[in-house]
């Protein structure tokens, strides 16, 4: 009867210390969000902390602020199209990189992943110079090309991760059972790598929706996206409407992640 006590672990001071560390890290990461959240309900005339009173007026302002509404529309259109294009391109590229051996494989791989390594400001500058003569500045096409370039590495990476863990004999089994290449892809490969593809798509959508630098360079004057509008707004006025907008954006991102997690299991996909 006293045996159970023998195995009771002794107090380990590392445990609460670790807990405190994790708490502080989270606090550090989330503090800006918390402050934005609080400020968006503050009645202060200008963006400042701490709040002087409670109000919903900033939220009420949002639908009437045409710059925000227009920016939101541009950003959503861009993000949706970018996500579609990037999936249509990235998944086949990842498949090719995983399944085939070819001479320039390493080069192709680096080419598609390189936008991650180059500072966006450099890319943005290059694009402005390139798009000028092509009349692509201030067009959807221009913004979309820019966003595709910076989001495709994510899709390729997550898809490759999924492919690396799949058993290729499943595809062989399906072929032997009579399935042609397209059927194998649609019925076997795609469902198996689906978590990676969806994770890549979600990341691409969020990155595109969030992107400021390239949009600013390529389309500031003609077709400002929401991040560009936010930047402009903060430059000109200093009220808490942007804080309210930020809270809405955080909630949208959160909703996307939660829905995908519920439906598909994003956590599984990102692991």
């Amino acid at each position: 009867m006293s045996e159970a006590r023998l195995f009771k672990p002794r107090f380990n001071p590392a445990k609460p210390a670790f807990g405190i560390l994790v708490f502080l890290l989270y606090l550090f990461l989330l503090a800006p969000l918390l402050i934005v959240f609080v400020v968006s309900f503050a009645s202060n005339q200008y963006l400042s902390f701490p709040p002087e009173g409670l109000t919903f007026k900033w939220y009420e302002m949002l639908p009437e602020e045409s710059t925000f509404v227009n920016g939101m529309r541009v950003s959503l259109i861009v993000a949706v199209i970018v996500t579609a294009i990037v999936l249509a391109l990235g998944v086949p590229v990842a498949l090719a990189l995983d399944r085939f051996e070819f001479k320039a494989k390493a080069a192709v791989q680096s080419f598609f992943l390189s936008p991650l390594l180059i500072p966006s400001i450099v890319l943005a500058l290059g694009m402005v110079l390139l798009f000028g003569p092509l009349n692509l500045n201030n067009t959807y096409t221009g913004i979309i090309i820019g966003h595709v370039a910076i989001t495709i590495p994510f899709v390729i990476r997550t898809t490759l991760m999924s492919l690396a863990t799949t058993d290729t004999s499943c595809e062989a089994a399906a072929r032997i059972l009579g399935a042609g290449s397209w059927t194998v892809f649609r019925r076997i490969t795609l469902p198996i790598i689906q978590p990676g593809v969806i994770a890549g798509g979600v990341i691409a959508f969020i990155v595109s929706f969030d992107e400021a630098v390239i949009s600013l360079f390529v389309a500031e004057s003609g077709l400002p996206t929401l991040p560009v509008q936010v930047l402009r707004y903060v430059e000109n006025s200093a009220d808490a409407a942007v804080a309210a907008l930020s809270v809405i954006l955080i909630l949208i991102s959160l909703a996307v992640v939660v829905v995908v997690e519920r439906v598909m299991g994003l956590r599984k996909a990102l692991r």
Partner: peptide
């Protein structure tokens, strides 16, 4: 896919996203 053969792999190669019935039915669907 035109040879009409059946194969059992060392790793079994069952389709992980389908249930037992769907796995077995695959060749018939084709």
């Amino acid at each position: 896919n035109k040879r009409g053969m059946g194969m059992v792999f060392q790793s079994y190669a069952l389709f992980p996203h389908m249930n037992v019935e769907q796995n077995v039915a695959f060749g018939l669907q084709m």
